[in-house]
Computed example of a mutant assay.
Amino acid sequence: MQQTQLIMDIDPGIDDALALAYACSHTTTIDLLAVTCIYGNVPVQQAGQNALALLKLLDREEVPVYLGEANPMQALDYEVSVDAKRKHGANGLGNIDLPTSDRQIEETAAVDFLLEAARTYGKSLAILAAGPLTNIAACLERDPAFLSRIGHLVVMGGAFLIEGSVTSFAETNTSKDPQASHQVVSQGGPISIVGLDVTLRTLLPESKARQWFNSSDPVRQKLGQMACHYIEAYQAVQPHTIGCPIHDALALHAVLAPEDFSFLKLPVKVEQTGVARGRMVGDKQRLSDFASHVQVAVNLDVTTFEKSFLQAIESRRL
């Protein structure tokens, strides 16, 4: 079976950690080239240290880690939101202590690495962008053909058919840098958007997270500790919650098994101003411009994904 060369552009983040564990379980189908980091759930420097620690936990220390942009486009700094600190903890990983990696973050900047990887691997390269899209937008500014060089960009972001998570309109990742989000998704090309419309249908049950928490397996134990923190944070504001969405792992599933999704093809834009700032929405002005169309996930086989995800973690193919 031919492997997909994969780069994960993430801001770890508890759901990012679960996605990374999911990726590391697919050693026969995924060649994980690197983790590139972006600000978001934590500042970018913390994101890099989290990635190193997670890769050590997952016994994948051969995978390099690169630091990307520290701030949104045209912003001088970035402050982690109160909501992100509540959901992910001060360190981004539910305040769970992980073994410190002896490795260093690569000296090459993430954007430089992404540009070189696109030229090297071409259509066999898939990128999972599960944080703000600032790194990807920076690649496009330096190489407008960047997206046309690669095989697949999967974006975890947006909310098309339901309310957003930050406002009634905006999902978290797109809201952090609407300008970058628009520059990327409006390009068209090999883009699949996996947003809240589908990620909120997936669930890691609290009972399963508790089972992992009490496991003798160190990987499942740490993932369970993180997931329990995540679930408790959701329950604090949504008492009916019985688990947590598996946002980023589901986006990765669109790389592994796109046939498990139903996609709507249309041109997309991101609102830049006003009450709807950060809203990712279909662009009616370009409906007939088929070159600008991207795939937006609107449905999925929930059972198949959840079975695949749980089996990957519990089989310990990590």
Rank of each mutant, 00 (worst) to 15 (best):
M1I: 14
Q2V: 12
L6R: 04
I7R: 04
D11L: 01
D16A: 11
L20D: 02
L20V: 04
C24V: 06
H26D: 13
I30Q: 03
D31P: 05
L33T: 15
Y39M: 02
V42L: 05
Q45P: 01
A47L: 06
G48K: 02
L54S: 09
L55E: 15
V63S: 05
P64G: 10
P64H: 13
V65M: 14
Y66R: 12
L67K: 14
L67S: 08
A70P: 00
L76M: 06
Y78R: 00
E79Q: 08
E79Y: 00
V80E: 08
R86N: 13
G89E: 14
G89M: 06
N91S: 04
N91A: 08
G92H: 03
L93Y: 03
N95F: 11
Q104K: 15
T108N: 10
A110W: 09
D112V: 14
L114P: 01
A117S: 13
K123F: 04
S124A: 11
S124W: 00
A129Y: 06
A130T: 06
A130L: 02
A130R: 04
L133A: 10
N135H: 04
A137F: 10
C139H: 10
F146S: 04
R149N: 09
H152S: 12
H152F: 02
L153R: 02
A159G: 09
L161M: 14
L161Y: 10
S165Y: 00
K176V: 04
D177F: 07
P178Q: 09
P178F: 01
H182E: 10
V184W: 09
V185A: 01
V185I: 15
P190D: 11
S192Y: 06
I193N: 09
V194D: 13
L203H: 08
P205I: 05
P205E: 09
K208A: 06
Q211N: 01
Q211V: 03
F213R: 08
Q221C: 10
Q221F: 00
K222N: 03
L223A: 00
M226V: 01
M226Q: 04
Y234T: 03
Y234P: 00
Y234N: 08
Q235H: 01
A236W: 04
H240G: 00
A249C: 07
A249S: 13
A251C: 07
L256E: 11
E259N: 15
E259H: 15
S262L: 13
L264V: 15
L266I: 05
L266P: 00
K269E: 03
T273P: 02
V281P: 10
K284A: 04
K284Y: 14
K284E: 03
S292Q: 09
V294G: 07
V294K: 03
Q295A: 15
A297M: 12
L300R: 07
D301L: 13
V302P: 03
F305K: 07
E306T: 05
E306D: 02
F309Y: 15
Q311Y: 05
Q311T: 08
E314N: 07
R317K: 11
